[in-house]
Amino acid sequence: MSRFITSVQSAKGSTERIFNILDEEDEKNKNDFLEEPSFGTLELKDIGFAYGEKNIFENINLKIMPNTVTALVGPSGVGKTTLFYLLERFYDPLKGEILLDGKSHLNIDLDKWRSMFSYVSQDCPILAGTIRENITYGIQREVSKDEIINASILANCHEFITSFSDGYDTILGERGINLSGGQKQRISIARAFLRDTPFLLLDEATANLDTNSENMIKHALDNLIYKKTTIVIAHRISTIQNADQIVVLDQGGISGFGTHDQLIKSNKLYQLLSNQQKMTS
């Protein structure tokens, strides 16, 4: 009886959360007049954002040029991931606007906007199902077998997939419990290859991996970022020294931006982060 009561209370709490989600309003476009998106310069103009009473950004101004690599660095809690959420329009800025090739984000269809972004995170999502289903997850078109194989080869995961007896039809457990961290990352990268979007968001995809897996993923990412506008959340300065632009975030906004050589000479926070990592490496 005591176990039954515990189960009922647990189910009650879960049910309440499910119904809270179902009661949320569907996302919709803010404006009736919508323009077709075009690949170009991505600009954040006077962006301000807060979580309730906690202010995150004030007057963020940043230009990200096409086919370049921009890295975001800074201490924990300064809003690096929040900036990704704003770019993907999971949240709307409280003030300011995001411009794509001069067009406001509010004037571009939400689905079309999101279809231009691919996201590879540290903790890549793997769902219960086959490897094939995980690679093609979220793709809104028919995908051929050859496309899946080519994407997997570029992501350095074809070899380990074919080592399974069922190959691409191998059933994966919830959260990819029967895969290593590096294998899950490479499947996530293969998914990004298939999406083939002009913008790529990377949340330090090589973090917390062994050297062999890290080298494989770095090679796969080198293939992936070709001819894309890439924005990287960097936890290790050593991984982004060749970025076209490094943006240093501090509490409330941007404390500096430039190349590695420029920032190491002029930005105190960047110098501090770099020295701290040298001491712990």
Results as ranks from 00 to 15, higher is better:
residue 51 Y to C: 07
residue 102 G to M: 01
residue 131 I to N: 04
residue 129 G to A: 11
residue 125 P to H: 05
residue 82 T to M: 10
residue 133 E to P: 00
residue 30 K to C: 07
residue 94 L to Y: 04
residue 61 N to M: 03
residue 120 V to P: 05
residue 132 R to I: 02
residue 85 Y to F: 13
residue 97 E to I: 00
residue 114 R to Y: 03
residue 74 G to L: 08
residue 96 G to A: 05
residue 143 V to R: 06
residue 106 L to G: 00
residue 141 R to F: 02
residue 111 D to Y: 08
residue 81 T to N: 11
residue 86 L to S: 12
residue 97 E to G: 01
residue 137 Y to P: 04
residue 135 I to N: 05
residue 36 E to L: 12
residue 127 L to Y: 15
residue 46 D to A: 11
residue 95 K to E: 14
residue 34 L to C: 07
residue 66 P to F: 10
residue 115 S to A: 14
residue 102 G to L: 00
residue 74 G to M: 10
residue 32 D to K: 15
residue 65 M to S: 13
residue 102 G to W: 01
residue 54 K to C: 04
residue 36 E to M: 12
residue 116 M to C: 06
residue 47 I to E: 04
residue 73 V to R: 08
residue 38 S to F: 05
residue 131 I to R: 06
residue 146 D to Q: 15
residue 139 I to D: 03
residue 84 F to Y: 10
residue 34 L to R: 07
residue 144 S to I: 07
residue 94 L to D: 12
residue 39 F to R: 11
residue 123 D to N: 14
residue 135 I to Q: 06
residue 60 I to Y: 10
residue 133 E to H: 08
residue 41 T to A: 09
residue 144 S to Y: 07
residue 94 L to C: 05
residue 113 W to R: 03
residue 145 K to H: 15
residue 60 I to G: 08
residue 104 S to F: 08
residue 98 I to A: 05
residue 117 F to I: 13
residue 112 K to T: 04
